[in-house]
Design a protein around this nucleic acid. Sequence first.
DNA 1: CCGGCCAAGTTGGCCAGCCAACTTCCGGCG
DNA 2: CGCCGGAAGTTGGCTGGCCAACTTGGCCGG
Lengths: 255, 255
Amino acid sequence: MALDQDRAAGSLYRKVAADLREAITSGSFGEAGRLPAEGALAEQYGVSRGTVRQALAMLRADGLVTSRRGTRRVVLGSARVQSFSELLSFTHWARSMGEEPGGRLESLIRRPADAAEREQLRLEPGTEVYVTLRLRTLSGTPVMVERTVYPPRVGELVAQLPPDVVSHTEPLREHGILFTDADHTIDVVAANADDARLLTCRRGSPLLREKRRTTDPTGTPVEWSQDRYLPGTVAFSIHNSLASSALSRHARDDD
Amino acid sequence: MALDQDRAAGSLYRKVAADLREAITSGSFGEAGRLPAEGALAEQYGVSRGTVRQALAMLRADGLVTSRRGTRRVVLGSARVQSFSELLSFTHWARSMGEEPGGRLESLIRRPADAAEREQLRLEPGTEVYVTLRLRTLSGTPVMVERTVYPPRVGELVAQLPPDVVSHTEPLREHGILFTDADHTIDVVAANADDARLLTCRRGSPLLREKRRTTDPTGTPVEWSQDRYLPGTVAFSIHNSLASSALSRHARDDD
DNA sequence: CCGGCCAAGTTGGCCAGCCAACTTCCGGCG
DNA sequence: CGCCGGAAGTTGGCTGGCCAACTTGGCCGG
């Protein structure tokens, strides 16, 4: 049953995971209810127990269910953003929330990489990098200033994009630049003069900063970025357990 | 080879993962080098390929290696904090950095839970909760204010702890209260009067806020906490990819 | 010399089975 | 009535095997 629809990518376990995720969030198992046993699910979906376990591992990593030896799995919480591309691309994230992402390129310069940039992007001394400064908006209101450093291979492509293009990752993907892995660091920083001007806030007022280093499938760095969010616009959300962890970015709607 | 030492918990794949993690961070495969094939590792460790794959899945989730069909895995970065308990317990985290954690209980009150607290801790209306306010220090200097709400079962135990106890999670664990899963939300907030007094900063100055809801293995909430960190003392760090995500908290030592 | 094709190598995915460790529940016994 | 032990149920872990999808590099032909 239930797998007839192509609800997820090719692999079986992803389809099972997607189906279970939907069942959980729609409350089929209750608020904090117990899931069917792995064997029962395997029979129900017509797959092996190993495949079901692979699907359940995804849900466990996302913090949707518990998993303990000896007991049925228990529903922990409801679906969160799947955090795949939502965290790598401001545009994807905004659209997944139903908001309209916007952006304005403030500056794009080309200059030799400094020591820190060479370290992050794993470049030879003397290599030139492309540095962009962009203001990002959500449904028209400014929420974030993005400073990104690109290695030559990527920067050359970015430089040819029209200045008013909304998404950077999408056109880059069409040129074979893939964003697959990223390291994020989150802290607080005071707004400098540029930040204050672009975000229309006072200089020195606090901003939520996300530093991000992104690599492609081969492990080659493709981007090093520093995003500064206006407080109250976004928050970062993480689930972690003894098994795994998952992160998602979401808009602030509560307190 | 190499598995003679009990470098990790019981399961084979954890031992393999720990060994590989050490080999990667010690540079055995080079800065961005390629790992041996799964089959080769399986033979080398004397385990099946499935076990090696389970170990490698951990490393991939931690952002240490890539994984693509058709190619050997590539070293992405070096070891990060394993984020198991480091993120659940301020004390564990501090000690893992070699710093001396401290704490002072400012207040502990018992009162009926409000709507938000009942929602978070999944309590019946009218249930009483225990609310603590603690100042946390790192090697003597104040870095964080922690406001925690405990459900009755846990709060009763917390109330009996001596006020100067450093770690809360450790004594609770001895009473059968386990912290296994947590949801974290990170954003910025302005210091209120209490925060300013305890952290010796100005009122309204920005603090990094981490809201945390922790559950035990059965999925029952055991804690709801709101931690406010002085800027410049901590940052939160995450790795995410198309496959998985991992989070760790770390001290700020760079910029 | 360049380009395309092909084969080898490698990981992703799935299956079937087995045992151990653990939890829960129920019934018996004190 | 309460405690304890055991059986049933469930997940964790590991093996061995098979095929598909994909990448890489080298060979061959133009």
